[in-house]
Design a protein around this nucleic acid. Sequence first.
RNA 1: GCUCGUGUGGUGUAGUUCGGUCCAUCAUGUCGCCCUCUCGAGGCGACGACCCGGGUUCAAAUCCCGGCACGAGCACCA
Length: 498
Amino acid sequence: MLAATNPEALQREKQKKRVGLKDLPNAQQGKVVLRFAPNPNGPLTLGHARGVSINSEYAKMYHGKVVLRFDDTDSKVKPPMPAAYDWIESDYEWLTGAKADIIIRASDRIPLYLDHAEQMLTGGFGYVCRCSAAAFKQLRDGKEACPCRPRSVEDNLIDWESMKEGNIAEGEAVVRVKTEMDLPNPALRDWPALRIQHSTHPMVGNRFKVWPLLDFQSAIEDHLQGVTHIIRGKDLMDSTRKQTILYSHFGWTYPETLYWGRVKVYEFGGFSTSGMRAEIENGVYSGWDDARLPTLRALRRRGFDATALRAFWIDLGLTQKDISVSLQTIEAFNAKEIDANCERRAFVRNPVSLELRTEMDESNPMDMISVPKHPDGKIEGARIWNLASQRILIEKQDAEIETIRLKDYADISNINGRATVQSWDRSDRRPIVHWIPENMARQAELSIPNGMKLHSVKGMIEDFELNIGQIIQLERVGFAKIESLADDLPVKLIWLHN
RNA sequence: GCUCGUGUGGUGUAGUUCGGUCCAUCAUGUCGCCCUCUCGAGGCGACGACCCGGGUUCAAAUCCCGGCACGAGCACCA
């Protein structure tokens, strides 16, 4: 019966998960222009990485471009940080493997915005408003137009010139975009486009007295750059609506707009750049690359891989849900990415020294052994261990077990600090432990970020071809990166993940 | 309060446009087993979800109505 009504239902296939990002609406190959527009008030964080990853991935899918735009039009509330421009450019490059196609700073382009503001005034779809913010809000909430609204273009232009000259004090005037005053959403009614700021901008000084607000600057610049698709947080949905009104005043077509929800990573909480900045200044954190911070610089320092990070964000995709993810998931992506490139080394925490009694005989005269750099042979070569000293180190915990197998070497019994070889081959199912010959061991300190704290684990590391910056997998411990190798000091390791 | 948005296993995601191929995908997680050599690795397996209530229909995760929950915006910040 089913066969008659719906033949295909008989041979149902398991469905597949779509891989990669959804198609962009109304996108043409080679013509897509996207943008990533951070505020340069610090380096990029894990949260920004979502924007960078998704925008650059779409650009790749459609052979389009990404505009990296610094939205630095406020020098009072969120003053830009001069060093952050370069940081962000290099963070972007690290993450995507290439520089952004176009890089611009809003603060370099103020005349363009002022010019459009003037067009708006001349065109009669904007006006200079001299009401106080509070007074305007009250009128707006009552759907009433403010007294400045019906003034003539000429009067507006006169005030506009005074604003630009610096003859009107901050807060005394603002340029508004005309909308319907009875719009259901009060946030949209005659929204402010430019305001007066007499403070000094760190990049361009005090050349300009009038500065555009984000909604205006961003709208004009998107048009100037030919942006076809905007991907932004859903907290900016009202921006889209405001800007759409402005676009129709100018006779432009608004770009396709997509949104994402808020992301929280359990281990880090939110990502407030200004919050981190304050904590760094207070000495709570050592710097932007402090291992406890969710900045890209900190993650990079710990050994997170850019490809893995991108893969993680692309897998999450673009949804409007507010989500909480675990760092563990990111770590799983990272482990998959780096495992094949990480050599293995032994790191013995809380080392206990044992005397190794081998009773060398014909069958096993070796005092040199070789252990693979990677268990699957994904990395060529071996680590050569010299057993001349006849003393070995194992972890205290492992020393409490009487019969163990020294990984890649021998089954032993451990009685009163004496390790006696029982068999070279694996003879039973005793636990396998990692170990190192004492003469191959070097002091090391592993630093493990754990929430707000930074734990330190001391131990001895296998001293075989260690290099600064190298990410290794400590056998039975996890991934770590070598931070420093000073001659007389313990090797410094920074923890990555399991 | 007003405006807007979102609800699929512990977490994240696919599927929702055009109802049947979905007793619902994949990843992560948890648990278990295996391992001729990392028991915090690797292999295998199991667990676990369509917010609720109605309606339309032969058939609803998918369409309609009504609830509920959560989130965001309502700055002369970005």
